[in-house]
Amino acid sequence: MSGKDVLIQVRDLEKHFDGGSIRALNGVSADIRRGEVVVVIGPSGSGKSTFLRCLNLLERPTGGAVVFDGVDITDPKVNIDLHRQKMGMVFQHFNLFPHMTILKNMTLAPMKLLKKSREEAEEKALTLLDRVGLRDRADAYPSQLSGGQKQRIAIVRALCMEPEVMLFDEPTSALDPEMVGEVLEVMKDLAHEGMTMVVVTHEMGFAREVGTRVIFMDGGIILEEDRPQELFAHPRSERLKTFLAKVL
């Protein structure tokens, strides 16, 4: 693959908390190419969330660089808000805006940032709601939805900004088991459409089915990475073997 296909280039990423006493990331490097679905796995506390949150600078790295679309966004002079518009993020706890209707949740950012008219923004939102089968909930408030519905809304809310990459931090971990499937379906559709995705998850089935690459993190570094079939079939490190034995 040629270098220009790389959408996010992560170089020697470090994140230390509390003045260095907590080392969440200890030199992580990775290239995320357009159209890739990178699945990040690893035990709790291994730095997966921190890694993901450093990609859009919700967490400011203490070392290294994140180059997004050719721009080093860790440079303090860069206007990060502009770049975040192109990086959608989905959280474990949905983080919908409880004081707004679903439609308002979805149209706020496009209207403020992409300067779309209300009609344009709502049309786009309704089309996306249709796709996830929730058009009839457009005027509902988040508190009136189930967890699975909330997470599907959170995904399409991010899609309303027409991002170039979607970041997912354990999107199904807070859901009741019977709702995991509906959310994974939406994510799989997205992957099949060619969306670039970075997904932190414990859903190994998802990784196997749509992941183009799996990254195994432990102790704040990438311990192994490979295509899912390879990684799951031939884990090299003891840590990965132990981890897989627990989750598979």
Binding site: N56, D81, G88, N95, L96, A109, K112, A158, M161
Partner: peptide
């Protein structure tokens, strides 16, 4: 107001002031 609200606003590309005004303060 839950810290996730600020993060959600910022992750969409809204700046600090916009997030405060439309998301945090009303709540």
């Amino acid at each position: 107001v839950d810290a996730g609200q600020m993060e959600a606003g910022r992750s969409l590309g809204l700046n600090y002031i916009q997030t405060m005004r439309h998301i945090i303060i009303p709540q």
